[in-house]
């Protein structure tokens, strides 16, 4: 058992965990941050994606002790950070996913949204192929990805203050904030 000092979503949290525990296990079962999901056990699905110093990593393959010294961001951290920065409502990526219908079962989406966050931190105006490539390590079984891509594009457009063209009248609760 080790006593770890992890920096998670801006806080330093002391937590005891055995050496062989992964970051995912510590987040979910020690810290109660269950927004990071477990889908495949071993790095094949991306549901457990968290950010380590703004880079997307798979927490199911990251030993918890090796996250020490890095800033860990989980899905629970996005909206509080947005509010701290003076924003209103939910983090714009989370909000866009909701407005575009990208959250069917929602299980893969925390990881997906963090991958999208990492992309936008690096490249604030990505093209659709760039978005697809950045999300290609996150499997979604519900959506066929279309509404996810639309959600990221919506967040990108709005972050630049651009008016968003609704794809067509039937799609996306884009006006319904």
């Amino acid at each position: 058992m080790r006593l770890l000092r992890l920096r998670v979503n801006g806080d330093v949290v002391p937590v005891a965990a055995p050496s062989h525990w992964t970051l995912l296990e510590v987040l979910r079962y020690r810290l109660g941050l269950t927004g990071s999901k477990q889908g495949c056990d071993k790095g094949d699905c991306g549901a457990c994606t968290v950010l380590l110093d703004k880079k997307p990593v798979l927490s199911c393959l990251t030993l918890a002790a090796l996250a020490e010294g890095h800033e860990v961001t989980t899905i629970e951290g996005l909206t509080p950070a947005h509010l701290r920065a003076g924003g209103r409502g939910a983090d714009p990526i989370q909000d866009a996913f909701d407005r575009c219908g990208a959250l069917q079962c929602g299980f893969c989406q925390p990881g997906m949204m963090l991958s999208a966050r990492a992309l936008l931190a690096k490249n604030p105006r990505p093209t659709r192929p760039e978005i697809q490539a950045a999300l290609a390590g996150n499997l979604c079984r519900c959506t066929g990805y279309t509404q996810i891509l639309e959600a990221v594009e919506l967040a990108v457009a709005e972050s630049g203050g651009a008016a968003v063209q609704p794809a067509d009248g039937r799609r996306g609760a884009r006006g319904a904030s």
């Binding site: 941050l33 927004g35 899905i75 996005l78 909000d95 929602g106 989406q109």
Partner: peptide, 9 residues
């Protein structure tokens, strides 16, 4: 339940 899912809640 969209925002609950989006925020990990």
């Amino acid at each position: 339940d969209g925002l609950a899912k989006a925020t990990g809640a």
